[in-house]
């Protein structure tokens, strides 16, 4: 029996081993339960009354169903404006980021290009050593971007980690296809747009998802560079969840009344649900894309 046959036999035994299958399924069920139960619990709390929550009557199903918590969050001043900005930063930022990263990654994937190695070293160096908050601020301020939405969209458009993923993916594409395109008369830009990008769905989706999540969750850059009228919703939600603890802890004279746990639960759902909903649509790319750029050649 050849080595290949032996390996195939082993795989078949594994596939048809009911005990192994049972434990695999069991472990997977436990993992699913561990992931979903806390989320369902938070959803149930967000729709329940504070009294029911405080008295431990809520588990996976809302008790005294109401939408007061969501109403309170939505009535927070400027909530919808902030949500609009979050969508703008997420979609706009991701789009700009993908365009800039693709345009940067494609030439860097060509090792024969003059200066490619030097440019790569600069990319890697800046990944480990950044200027820090104040120099960055001074730079962005001197470009007169502070207080404009471009302060969020432009300076953070290129993430070195994602860029390297793209570079490695582009390197893994068969060079013969590009050579054929050159023979057919396509320019390098034409090759990128018509040949490389259509073949890079998984990489683009993966990097796009990472970038979208970054822009969705990003609050610190907004705090530093934006006016309060341009804040994303994460800034408001963070303040709703953490602000009161800070007041009580510091013992100032400020308002210290308690914030209902239902409101905190609603905040968690509002802030995480939209981005979680993206995953199922991108999963087919994402699963494949997890190893994107891992192997060259």
């Amino acid at each position: 029996m050849s080595t290949l046959e032996k390996a195939n036999n082993k795989r078949r035994i594994k596939e048809h081993n009911p005990i192994l299958n049972f434990f695999t399924a069991l472990v997977m069920i436990i993992v699913v339960v561990c992931c979903t139960v806390p989320f369902l619990y938070i959803i149930a709390m967000s729709f329940s009354s504070s009294v029911a929550i405080t008295n431990n009557r809520v588990f996976l199903w809302p008790v005294d169903f109401n939408i007061e918590a969501y109403r309170s969050v939505y009535e927070y001043p400027n909530f919808f404006r902030a949500y609009g900005y979050t969508l703008l930063y997420t979609f706009g930022g991701t789009l700009i980021s993908l365009i800039m990263m693709v345009l940067f990654a494609y030439p860097l994937s060509k090792e024969w290009l003059k200066g490619q190695k030097f440019a790569m070293r600069i990319v890697v160096f800046s990944m480990f050593f950044s200027g820090g908050m104040i120099p960055n601020f001074l730079l962005i301020n001197s470009l007169h971007l502070v207080g404009t939405i471009w302060a969020i969209l432009i300076p953070f458009a290129i993430n070195q980690f994602n860029l390297i993923i793209l570079i490695n993916f582009f390197k893994s594409l068969p060079v013969e296809i590009e050579e054929a395109a050159v023979i057919d008369g396509l320019s390098y830009f034409g090759i990128l747009v018509r040949i490389v990008l259509p073949m890079s769905g998984a990489a683009i989706a993966t990097v796009g998802l990472y970038t979208a999540v970054f822009f969705w969750n990003n609050w610190f850059n907004a705090l530093i560079y934006l006016k309060s009228s341009q804040y994303p919703v994460m800034m408001l939600l963070r303040n709703i969840v953490n602000g009161r603890t800070m007041v009580v802890d510091n013992g100032g004279i400020g308002e210290k009344s308690s914030l209902a746990i239902a409101i905190k639960s609603a905040v968690i759902i509002i802030s995480s649900l939209p981005i979680i909903m993206l995953y199922p649509f991108l999963q087919k790319y994402f699963v494949k894309g997890m190893t994107v750029g891992a192997v060259k050649g």
Partner: peptide
Amino acid sequence: FEPIPMTDYSTKVTNVLTTQGDD
């Protein structure tokens, strides 16, 4: 008025005092 979330207020204040930037 520029309402800055309390949780991050001191960071923002330190930042503007340090940089005296456009904002």
